[in-house]
Design a protein around this nucleic acid. Structure first.
Lengths: 213, 213
DNA sequence: ATATCATTTAACCAAATGATTAAATAAATA
DNA sequence: TATTTATTTAATCATTTGGTTAAATGATAT
C-alpha cells in the first residue's frame, strides 16, 4: 500500500514536523502548527502518525542518525592521518553548515528526550562507543606513530567540540560580531584552518614551521 | 519594603524556578510544578512574579550571567600565558562541573529565547564581543610572542568548545562508556591535561618534549 | 461502475495550562 | 492593638492542546 501520493504526503508531514521540531523542540511544537507547515489539516496528522509522540520519535530518529553519521567514506579511505584529519574537519564542518539547526536541538533533546533519546543511543550503542570507527582510526594512528600518544576519546571530544561550538554559539557571535557569519565560506574556511593548525602543531611559540600541503 | 521573610520566599521561588527551567526549558516547565518545587501554592507565584514570562526572564538573566562570567581574577593576575591557559581551563571546567545543567539550557534557550535572549546579549554586548577580556589577553599574548600567531576569536571558540563539549555530550558518554563519568575527578583531571597539551603542543609526532611544570 | 483509501471540514472532547478570584488566616510592622 | 503585607485554599476562568468524530468528497485501483 505504497503509492507516490501517500508516500508524498507522509514525507511532506515528516519534513514539516522536522522543521517545526528543530525550531521549537518537542515541548514547544504544536500539532496544528506542523499541520499548517505541511499544508494539511490536523486530522490527517493523526491519520498518518496517530500521536505527537510517534511523530516525534520518527523525526528524532532521522535527526539523530543524521547528526551521528560516522562519515564512513573518509574513514575507509586509508589516508595518512594528517590528510584524514583535514578532511574530517572539512566534511564535518560542511555537514554542520548544511544543517545548522540540528546542533541546538540534538543536545537539548538529549537532555529532554527521555526514553526516545535513550532508545536511539541504545540502538547506536556500539558504533557510538566501543566500536566507534573514529576511535579506532585514532588508536591506529597512535600505534603507528602517525601522531603522538593521545587519549583517543579525549581527542575526539576535542575535535568535535571545536567543530560544533561555533554553530552552538552562533546566535551570540552573529550579534556581537556583526560582520561574522558562522555559515559563510570565509568563516568556515578560516575555521577549518585554525582547527587543523591548532590540533596539529599547537600554539607554543616556535611551532610555526609547517609547510602547507 | 524588603524583609527577610519576603526575600526568602522570593529567593526560594527563583531557586525552584531555576531548577525546573534548567530541566524542562521554558516550554516544558509548568507553573504548578515550580510552585510545588518551591513549596508554595501557585497563586503566590503570580503574587510575586505575575507571569511565567517575567519569572522566566529573571531566571534566564541569572543563568546567562553565570554562564558567561568573564573569570576576571585570573584575567587580571598577569600570569605567563601557559600558566594562564592552564588555570583558565581548570577553572572553566570546574565551573561547568558545578553547574552541569546549564550548558544544555543555555544553548537551547539561545535559540528559543527570542527577545529574552536578545536582551541579555545586548546587555552584555561589549564584554562578549568587542571588549571581551579573553580576546584581549590572547591578543596580547600573540603580540608579546608568548604564543604563535593565532586568530584570537577562533582560538577562544576552540578552547570553549573543548571544555564544553563533554558536558553537552554527557548523556551519550555516560551510556556508551559506562565507566566514564564526565563529572568525576578522574575524567576532569584528564580532560584538563589533554586540552592543555593539545593546545600547547598539538599532536604532530615529535611534539612530546615538554617538561611538566 | 464499484470499492477502497486519502483527504477535508467543522465541530467536538477531555484535559491541561497560565492566570485570577474571594475569603480567610498568618505574619510582620508601627 | 491596629494595620498592612504575605500566604493559603479552593474554585474558577479563558484559552490552548492533542486528539476524535461524522460525513462528505477526492483519488486511485480493479
Amino acid at each position: 500500500m505504497i503509492n507516490s501520493g501517500t508516500e508524498n504526503t507522509e514525507q511532506r508531514i515528516l519534513a514539516a514536523a522536522r522543521r517545526v521540531f528543530l525550531q521549537k523542540g518537542k515541548d514547544g511544537a504544536r500539532m496544528q502548527e506542523i499541520a499548517q507547515e505541511a499544508g494539511i489539516n490536523q486530522a490527517l496528522l493523526h491519520y498518518y502518525f496517530r500521536t505527537k509522540d510517534r511523530l516525534y520519535e520518527m523525526v528524532y530518529r532521522q535527526i539523530f542518525d543524521q547528526f551521528f553519521q560516522p562519515l564512513m567514506p573518509i574513514l575507509e579511505a586509508d589516508l595518512p592521518f594528517d590528510r584524514f584529519l583535514q578532511q574530517f574537519i572539512e566534511i564535518y564542518l560542511e555537514s554542520l553548515r548544511k544543517n545548522p539547526d540540528i546542533v541546538h536541538f540534538i543536545f537539548w533533546e538529549l537532555r529532554r528526550g527521555g526514553k526516545v533519546a535513550a532508545r536511539q543511543i541504545r540502538r547506536r550503542f556500539r558504533s557510538l562507543g566501543p566500536d566507534n570507527p573514529l576511535l579506532k582510526r585514532i588508536h591506529r594512528a597512535v600505534e603507528a606513530g602517525e601522531i603522538r600518544r593521545v587519549d583517543p576519546l579525549h581527542f575526539i571530544l576535542s575535535i568535535l567540540g571545536m567543530c560544533i561550538y561555533p554553530f552552538l554559539a552562533r546566535p551570540i557571535i552573529s550579534r556581537v560580531f556583526s560582520e561574522l557569519d558562522v555559515l559563510s565560506d570565509e568563516f568556515l574556511a578560516r575555521r577549518k584552518k585554525e582547527i587543523f593548525q591548532l590540533i596539529w602543531e599547537g600554539i607554543a611559540p616556535g611551532n610555526e614551521n609547517m609547510e602547507e600541503k
